[in-house]
Write a protein that binds this DNA or RNA. Structure first.
Lengths: 213, 213
DNA sequence: GCCACAATCACATAAAGGTGTGAAGGGTGC
DNA sequence: GCACCCTTCACACCTTTATGTGATTGTGGC
């Protein structure tokens, strides 16, 4: 094989940091470039060590791993980053993914798997704790819907809005719902008032942006 | 713990099927309900065994695993399905995910990990081969864009369409692009012709559906 | 040079959409 | 009962869009 994989580790817990560092350093094919308790000197450390893989704890004093991640990916896009955290809440996970994380491990991951994960990301895989993977899949199946419309718009108003979002004209909507076109106008007026828009296009765009596709 | 996890296995390769079946059957906490080389009797087998987890090969003679998956999920939504395949092409992966697969393992997965995967899905996780996970993450970061518009619509026509998609009126678009409103009309006419629509709304919806958001 | 096409503009007409105003019946809640 | 909202409808007036027809200029290919 070519050169060994250079790893940089950020982890504020000293025992954990030294433990992982020792393990990585002792693994053939891996090269432990450095291990730090915070990311305050991130840029200079990245420049100095040019790591292939960064193991990044999310919760650290000072700048968090989530803030550090986009910096790493913007400066060195090819660097693979594995996030580590005790929390598996959706928000952090998706923020990390959007920022370009290549792996996401919970802190209960056994050390041997961490080592495996480093190799995995370097080979182009994305090691993930299975519970994290599940959340990612669920996001696919049910893109998050913020439903303020449910109580903001009445059921009839939602019917009309759905009609608009299908590209229907007032007349078509009226026919489909078996009401007069003037009634459709009235409902649309109310929808516009509530969504604070004043054209069909704006209403549709807003409805889509808010997620109720 | 409560009752053991009931597993149903579909795999056309006899050696593989019997090997995995033996392993599952020999694992404490797992109950091997049945192992079949095809899904032609899927419904009756599901009804007979009521499995917690289904291990489903994609490439089988007759009905494929991808076709069987939606049937399983529609009949027994709570049943967890792990897909197994030798191919990791994007199309199959995303079709499986959309159909509700909870796990996705490549065929080179060691048997011990298959067993682990069964427990994982039953616990609510989503075991995935890391290369599959990578594709899923990439899909997140760069939602696929089909850009037929690039050559279908001229640059100016795309400018106008973008204006529409921002909710602008003809007049606003004209001002922004420093052209007359009649020119905007002309371009929009051409856009409608090319997209085969006949209203602003339809054009916007089509543009969004095609991905050029 | 000719052709196709992109980009610009103009004038005109009909259809669709947006807004003001008003009103009647049904339902919920206090 | 009364206030408030939802749903339904009507008429009027104006703006925005959609479409028909036609024209000029410039660019790139053959």
């Amino acid at each position: 094989m070519e050169h060994s994989v250079k790893v940089l580790l950020y982890e504020d817990n000293r025992d954990l940091r030294e433990g992982i560092a020792y393990l990585l350093q002792a693994t053939p094919g891996l090269q432990m470039a450095g291990a730090f308790p915070h990311v305050n000197n991130l840029k200079s450390e990245l420049h100095a060590y040019m790591p292939d893989v960064v193991l990044l704890d999310i919760n650290m004093p000072g700048m968090s791993g989530l803030e550090a991640l986009p910096i790493i990916k913007s400066l060195y896009p090819k660097t693979q980053v594995i996030m580590q955290t005790v929390f598996d809440d959706d928000e952090r996970i998706f923020q990390a993914i959007r920022s370009g994380a290549s792996g996401y491990l919970l802190k209960n991951t056994p050390p041997a798997e961490i080592v495996q994960a480093v190799f995995d990301v370097h080979r182009g895989g994305s090691p993930m704790t299975t519970s994290v993977a599940r959340k990612v899949l669920q996001y696919f199946q049910h893109p998050p819907k913020t439903h303020p419309a449910d109580h903001l718009l009445s059921t009839r108003e939602q019917d009309i809005l759905k009609g608009l979002m299908k590209g229907y004209s007032y007349k078509l909507i009226a026919d489909e719902l078996h009401i007069s076109i003037d009634t459709v106008r009235t409902h649309i007026r109310h929808v516009y008032d509530k969504l604070q828009v004043n054209s069909k296009t704006e209403a549709i765009l807003k409805a889509m942006k808010e997620g109720w596709v």
